[in-house]
Nucleic acid binder design. Structure first.
Lengths: 234, 234
DNA sequence: CGCACCGTTGATTAAACTCAACCTATGTGG
DNA sequence: CCACATAGGTTGAGTTTAATCAACGGTGCG
């Protein structure tokens, strides 16, 4: 197949960032490189949707994707984001169920695909790789449990404060100290489980209090200490 | 050590119910039986608490345990229950972190303990077992994602309706059609993330509408169809 | 008996959602 | 190039939901 870009090589990816493949043997890494497929995916594209059968897992080499569920009356609930080094879709593949989430690219991405067969081949051949995947799943599970407690018990204001810190942590900041992710107000609302208007009002409130700075979708955290206090995390 | 009860044998447990150990070889099952320890644990006992380092996983042979996190001002958020055949604590062991939840016995239990060393021994030796554990983790992850969407988007009434159906499903009913789990109103509230009073009011409302019957903590579902409609699940 | 825990009910309050209007930027087709 | 459509953002007003506070009854137990 003729590709118009340099396909990432699993070995490089593995060296550069710590991927789930770090316990694979050199020949297994080669097997992976030869058997994966890889695509550039434009912002706005839906990779797969809730209910789809997916036939393999996706490994993110570049870009940002949002993983969400569609709830009551189409309202989306963002579960998490995926970025360089993350693997998505494994849940559905492992338990042979249709996807329970949808995935949309929100920043131009390069995504590699590894089919179920190849995944199982590696899982059976290399138990360390299985343990590695188990670690990923367990980590995600811990995050999900925290999320449940937060949504159930915290106020919208506390959740917003927490998510801002969390986004800064996960995506870092650019030279101007602006958080490296571009979300609409609605997406922030769908992340913390509230209405768009509530997010807007609270962001203005934070801005008025000198805790953050806003320029359109750009968010800069000026007083992380105060934000942390507001978020009620210890 | 002198035991005052018949310790469960892993082989029997494995035959009787489908445990995560079903892919183990006979000699691995024997290894397990010889190396596990087993205890009767009385209702009310705390098995471990959030923040504790735990040195292995627990396999439930009998009884019911509640797994919960302690949130704002000590308010507990119940994450899930564990019963016969369930395994708990693996998350912390796999990622070598302190427990992120506490576990309390709410119905007299028999619990087997398998140390981290033994667990890793089996995981490394038998990749199928690792896949099995991965399946458990992925299943739990899917449930957690659903939970997040529910708590974030549904009303308290919808969540209560849903949880009643879910409890019936998970624990079944006795001869009198009463759900086989004994929860305080507060525990139901901590499960769906609301106040105790709200649960009480809504349960009375459901009762008045002829959807359920109540006798103390005993709950009988009379109209599952209506309840399902109310819960907004499709 | 008196304490502790649970369950219940009523009244009040507060948080957050909904609805509606309007503004801005951006892009598109005539 | 302008008119218009669209999507996102903002603000205000009103309403709803559910939390909080308070009082009280029942039950079991030391």
């Amino acid at each position: 197949m003729n590709k118009f870009f340099d396909e990432p090589i699993c070995k490089d990816c593995n060296l550069e960032i710590k991927t789930i493949f770090k316990k694979l043997l050199p020949e297994q890494i080669d097997f992976l490189t030869q058997n994966k497929t890889c695509n550039i995916i434009k912002k706005g594209t839906v990779l797969y949707q809730e209910g789809n059968r997916i036939s393999g897992i996706y490994c993110i080499n570049k870009g940002i994707l949002k993983i969400y569920k569609t709830g009551i009356e189409g309202k989306e609930q963002i579960i998490k984001f995926a970025k360089k080094g993350d693997v998505i879709g494994y849940r559905s593949v492992i338990i042979s169920e249709p996807a329970c989430t949808s995935v949309k690219v929100i920043e131009d991405a390069i995504v590699c695909f590894i089919s179920s067969q190849e995944l199982y081949h590696l899982l059976k051949e290399n138990s360390e790789f299985g343990i590695e995947m188990l670690e990923i799943a367990c980590k995600e599970l811990g995050e999900a449990n925290n999320y449940i407690t937060d949504i159930a018990q915290k106020s919208v204001k506390e959740r917003l404060a927490e998510i801002l810190l969390h986004l800064k942590d996960e995506f870092g900041v650019n030279n101007d100290d602006i958080i490296n992710i571009n979300l609409t107000r609605e997406e922030i609302a769908n992340l913390i489980g509230t209405a768009t208007e509530s997010v807007i009002r609270l962001l203005s409130e934070f801005k008025a209090a000198g805790i953050i700075e806003l320029q359109g979708r750009k968010i800069k955290i000026k007083d992380a200490v105060k934000l942390k206090k507001m978020s009620n995390v210890f």
